[in-house]
Write a protein that binds this DNA or RNA. Structure first.
Length: 260
DNA sequence: ATGGTGGAAAGTCCA
């Protein structure tokens, strides 16, 4: 029948700078499928050999110089790999990769940050979310096992931010971006962490600046959404907060969902 | 305090 497996999302803020943390965390977590964002390297520099040695034989990566970059590391074979959104030809930003593993469609995204509400980059963010919506429309159904995960760069609700009054209407919380994320979720996706922890303010990103982690000034923007068929198999969603306290960490920590 | 910290990459851009 179905194979139990776990899936993680983690914005590593440079895979080159974070490779030791990644290897350490892969060893301690043993997660089966890992979706990375912000690898920040060209494809020829991707450390495929060392990741294969760590047990992740099946890899896909999609990078560019300096910025962005996404990858999927898997203990199980990857099929139907797609790098970039379908209409990516005039967009050089590497923010999307998808593959099917164990019969599950995994869509790994690095949603644009948006820089500042109302800026050109903010409009690019909104447009990118609409392109993601188009990609998933018709693919999400109750019966098909599917995951959408990644750095959404949007806190879905006020409970997902350290201070909803300070953050009200700001980047990561603005109604225009929240509305577009909710429209994607409403295609038929479930936020397993939120459903299991309805009132928990638990975060996945803390600003490097102004001692954000020490003061727990964080937001939950790294999400794992599952289709109905997969959500019924979900046994746990955990935020691996301790990784953020390691020496010279990414500003994001990993999030892991487990399915039976 | 239009700052602050960290990464890429070599002066800024991005988050």
């Amino acid at each position: 029948m179905t194979t139990p497996f776990s899936v993680a999302t983690w914005n590593v803020n440079s895979l080159r700078a974070r490779i030791d943390h990644v290897l350490q965390w892969l060893k301690e977590s043993g997660v089966d499928v890992v979706c990375l964002q912000e690898t920040k390297m060209t494809d020829d520099r991707f450390p495929a050999d060392v990741l294969r040695e760590a047990g992740y034989e099946h890899l896909v990566w999609h990078g560019q110089p300096t910025y962005n970059g996404v990858a999927i590391l898997s203990r199980y074979p990857l099929e139907d790999i797609q790098t970039g959104l379908p209409d990516d030809e005039d967009d050089p930003q590497a923010r999307y990769v998808s593959a099917t593993v164990l019969g599950v469609e995994v869509h790994n995204v690095y949603v644009p940050n948006g820089q500042a509400v109302g800026s050109d980059k903010f409009h690019y963010k909104l447009r990118w979310l609409e392109r993601l919506h188009q990609r998933l429309q018709g693919r999400v159904s109750a019966e098909r096992p599917l995951i959408l995960c990644g750095d959404m760069n949007i806190a879905p609700d006020d409970v997902d931010v350290w201070d909803p009054f300070v953050m009200d209407g700001q980047l990561l919380c603005h109604p225009e971006e929240r509305r577009r994320l909710e429209a994607i979720r409403a295609l038929g996706l479930r936020d397993g962490f939120r459903e299991r922890n309805p009132f928990a303010s638990a975060f996945s990103w803390w600003d490097y600046r102004q001692r954000g982690f020490e003061r727990n000034h964080g937001v939950r923007i790294d999400l794992i959404y599952a289709s109905e068929a997969l959500h019924t198999r979900c046994t746990d969603v955990s935020i691996h907060r301790h990784v953020r306290s390691w020496e010279r960490p990414s500003d994001h920590c990993p999030v892991v969902a487990t399915f039976e």
